[in-house]
Amino acid sequence: MYSFELVRPKSLAEALSALKEEDAQALGGGQTLIPTLKQRLAQPSKLVSLSAIDEIKGVCVDDDGRLCIGGGTTHGEIVASAGDYPALVSLASRIGDPAVRNRGTIGGSIANNDPSACYPAACLASNATICTDHREIPADEFFQGMFMTALEEGEIVTEVRFPVPQKANYQKFAQPASRFPLVGVFVARFSDGVRVAITGASEGGVFRWTEAEEALSDNFSPEAIEGLTASADGLITDLHGSAAYRAHLIKVLTGRAVKAAA
């Protein structure tokens, strides 16, 4: 770790101001950034901790019935407070271990957009809206590729608004070492259709399996996707599985998610 200055603002405004400094970086729960710093793979001059900003924490339901989760809300708090969206609670409860869940935040996770993170699948499948300090971004536009998002320099995720589906389920097939998803599939059924988001599998990060969405929108049952094949093009091949294996898992897990949700 290189030395850096640490500030811990109490308001969003103070945080935004602090982040204007060159080489300043926002620190959420630190579950990715701190190990990165320890490895000396990043050298920010200033870390702006978001952990003391109460206005970006907490869970509530808005007038449209959407579940609104502050960007600084930890996975543990979501498990405790997001009971209106059981599939999301289930997802959050399986991230890392208790220590990770008590520090890591939803805003930090989606801002990082690790291709194997769980939340991006939930956001994309739920058609969530990502709110920042100055705008609202639909999930379909937010996630732009491996570790890439629509966020600008110094922009802070303040809230994620989840429309609550009629039925939903998240299937996570753990990579044996990291226990991040080797493939994770989030299926959400709304009155106007089904959305299927895949994480862990693609070189391009989280994505929607549109063929499955169409088939499931017509017939929300595991049989509906039997004739489909997820393409292995652009999927990750690594020590833990080939692109073909990941493509296979996408289909298996989608079927299981539908079965569990239906």
């Binding site: 091949t237 690594d238 020590l239 599985g241 080939s242 073909a244 294996y245």
Partner: peptide, 23 residues
């Protein structure tokens, strides 16, 4: 060994466990 899910699946399906990866 190790009989990872990917290797077992590949063996069941007569596939190569990993194209291009180091194992």
């Amino acid at each position: 060994m190790p009989l990872s899910p990917a290797r077992v699946w590949a063996a069941m399906n007569g596939a190569t466990a990993n194209e291009g990866a180091a194992q």
